[in-house]
């Protein structure tokens, strides 16, 4: 109860690249902050913006979506389609003043170190922002 606040970050990782990248970071014993909660998805193109919004709604302090580098998509073009959706969401959240709550990255299966760096950077940004502002007035759901 009294431990200092730590950001919780939901990470949607594509099965073919970023999830494997996270795996590589693990087997290579590369240290990165334990603040992320990984949700494996088939492709970054399958990440509906509503998933991201729902994660924020459920109290995540930040969201990271990561997929294959452009051109490397297992499904050829999933991440290109994803990029268009994410751009719109990014710009919209920017207008709302919540831009740094949601991050996107491209991490390949061979980039274990890069994955750890991305998580480190995202965790630091979200930590500097403080708790999710959508959680205000939420008290009924906390365990007493």
């Amino acid at each position: 109860m009294n431990s200092p606040w730590e950001p919780k970050i939901v990470a949607f990782l594509c099965h073919w690249c970023s999830y494997a990248g996270a795996d590589l970071a693990g087997v290579s014993r590369i240290q990165y902050p334990p603040n992320i909660r990984v949700v494996r998805v088939p492709c970054s193109g399958s990440v509906d913006p509503l998933y991201i919004l729902k994660a924020l709604r459920e109290g995540a302090d930040g969201v990271l979506v990561s997929g294959c580098h452009p051109g490397d998509c297992h499904y050829l073009s999933g991440n290109y389609f994803a990029r268009r959706k994410f751009l719109v969401l990014h710009k919209l959240l920017d207008l709302l003043g919540l831009r740094d709550r949601v991050h996107f990255s491209w991490v390949s299966a061979s980039e274990g170190q890069r994955f750890a760096d991305v998580v480190k950077a995202v965790t630091e940004v979200v930590r500097s922002l403080g708790p999710n502002p959508l959680r205000e007035g939420e008290s009924t759901c906390d365990t007493p």
Partner: peptide, 23 residues
């Protein structure tokens, strides 16, 4: 995706989600 009560977070998902659908 959201609860029917009009709290800030549910309203956020509704309006931003709808904005994404209307992009």
């Amino acid at each position: 995706f959201l609860h029917p009560s009009p709290t800030l977070r549910d309203n956020f998902v509704f309006h931003i989600g709808r904005a994404m659908h209307l992009a």
